[in-house]
Simulated scan of single mutants.
Amino acid sequence: MRHQTLDQLHKVAEIQTDPTQLGMDRTQRLQRWAELLERQPARLLSALPGTEYYPSHERDLMRSFGSAITVAFEDPLLRREGLANDSYGEAKRFFELSDGQLHNVVCHCHVGETMHASRAALCVRSAIGGMGFLASLRALFHWTARPA
């Protein structure tokens, strides 16, 4: 028997899910997002400019083509779970993140105009919790280092 991921099966078959099955919880959604980002760790993602400076109604509408949120929205599973688009406000709602948590994932003030997907994945995982402070620092400095 050959084991395949759900994404692999979607390429060769129509997959129907059990409608009685409960949806993903917050942690599962965040883990899925981190895993998607980790699949292409060197992928350059666009950052959102100055999310902390906009009023919430404007911030919620912010989007950037090729952002970490776009990676989540490209996933059919997360869209089936209810991710409606790749805007800041939708990511905040769907992943149940605070402005501070989402700011750390997508804002340009930490990384400039672009970031590696591995760095975004680390920030998503830190929003899940459970990563110690020293481990977070070690991983952050390892993954944000850019080649010379």
Rank of each mutant, 00 (worst) to 15 (best):
residue 3 H to V: 07
residue 3 H to W: 04
residue 4 Q to T: 08
residue 5 T to V: 03
residue 5 T to K: 01
residue 8 Q to N: 04
residue 9 L to I: 07
residue 10 H to E: 11
residue 10 H to Q: 14
residue 12 V to R: 08
residue 13 A to Q: 08
residue 13 A to R: 04
residue 13 A to L: 03
residue 13 A to V: 08
residue 13 A to F: 00
residue 17 T to Y: 01
residue 17 T to N: 11
residue 20 T to P: 02
residue 20 T to Q: 11
residue 22 L to G: 11
residue 23 G to N: 10
residue 23 G to K: 13
residue 24 M to T: 15
residue 24 M to P: 15
residue 25 D to N: 08
residue 26 R to L: 02
residue 29 R to M: 07
residue 31 Q to G: 05
residue 34 A to K: 11
residue 34 A to D: 02
residue 35 E to Y: 00
residue 37 L to I: 02
residue 37 L to T: 04
residue 39 R to N: 04
residue 39 R to M: 00
residue 42 A to C: 04
residue 43 R to S: 07
residue 45 L to Y: 02
residue 45 L to E: 03
residue 46 S to M: 07
residue 46 S to P: 01
residue 46 S to V: 02
residue 46 S to F: 01
residue 47 A to N: 04
residue 47 A to C: 09
residue 47 A to W: 00
residue 49 P to M: 00
residue 50 G to D: 04
residue 50 G to K: 10
residue 51 T to L: 14
residue 51 T to C: 09
residue 53 Y to F: 08
residue 53 Y to E: 10
residue 53 Y to C: 13
residue 54 Y to Q: 01
residue 55 P to D: 04
residue 56 S to N: 06
residue 57 H to F: 12
residue 57 H to C: 05
residue 57 H to E: 05
residue 58 E to N: 11
residue 58 E to C: 01
residue 61 L to A: 09
residue 61 L to I: 07
residue 61 L to C: 12
residue 61 L to S: 12
residue 64 S to A: 14
residue 64 S to C: 12
residue 64 S to R: 12
residue 65 F to N: 15
residue 65 F to S: 15
residue 66 G to M: 08
residue 67 S to L: 10
residue 67 S to P: 10
residue 68 A to W: 07
residue 68 A to L: 00
residue 68 A to P: 09
residue 69 I to F: 01
residue 69 I to V: 12
residue 70 T to S: 14
residue 71 V to A: 04
residue 74 E to M: 13
residue 76 P to I: 06
residue 77 L to D: 09
residue 78 L to S: 13
residue 78 L to C: 11
residue 78 L to F: 05
residue 80 R to E: 15
residue 82 G to K: 03
residue 82 G to S: 05
residue 84 A to N: 03
residue 84 A to T: 15
residue 85 N to A: 06
residue 86 D to E: 01
residue 87 S to M: 06
residue 88 Y to M: 14
residue 89 G to F: 04
residue 90 E to V: 03
residue 91 A to I: 02
residue 94 F to R: 10
residue 94 F to E: 07
residue 94 F to M: 07
residue 95 F to L: 06
residue 95 F to C: 08
residue 96 E to N: 12
residue 96 E to Y: 03
residue 96 E to S: 13
residue 98 S to K: 08
residue 98 S to Q: 04
residue 99 D to V: 03
residue 101 Q to M: 05
residue 101 Q to L: 09
residue 102 L to Y: 02
residue 104 N to T: 06
residue 105 V to A: 13
residue 105 V to W: 06
residue 105 V to L: 12
residue 106 V to F: 12
residue 106 V to N: 05
residue 107 C to Y: 12
residue 107 C to Q: 14
residue 108 H to G: 15
residue 109 C to G: 09
residue 113 E to H: 08
residue 113 E to C: 04
residue 113 E to Q: 13
residue 113 E to M: 01
residue 115 M to E: 02
residue 117 A to W: 00
residue 118 S to L: 03
residue 119 R to K: 11
residue 120 A to Y: 04
residue 120 A to T: 13
residue 120 A to D: 05
residue 123 C to G: 01
residue 123 C to K: 15
residue 124 V to A: 10
residue 126 S to L: 01
residue 127 A to N: 10
residue 128 I to C: 14
residue 129 G to N: 07
residue 129 G to R: 01
residue 131 M to I: 15
residue 131 M to D: 06
residue 132 G to T: 11
residue 134 L to C: 08
residue 135 A to L: 07
residue 137 L to K: 13
residue 137 L to T: 09
residue 137 L to F: 03
residue 137 L to V: 15
residue 138 R to F: 11
residue 139 A to S: 13
residue 140 L to K: 15
residue 141 F to C: 12
residue 141 F to T: 08
residue 142 H to F: 00
residue 142 H to K: 14
residue 143 W to L: 14
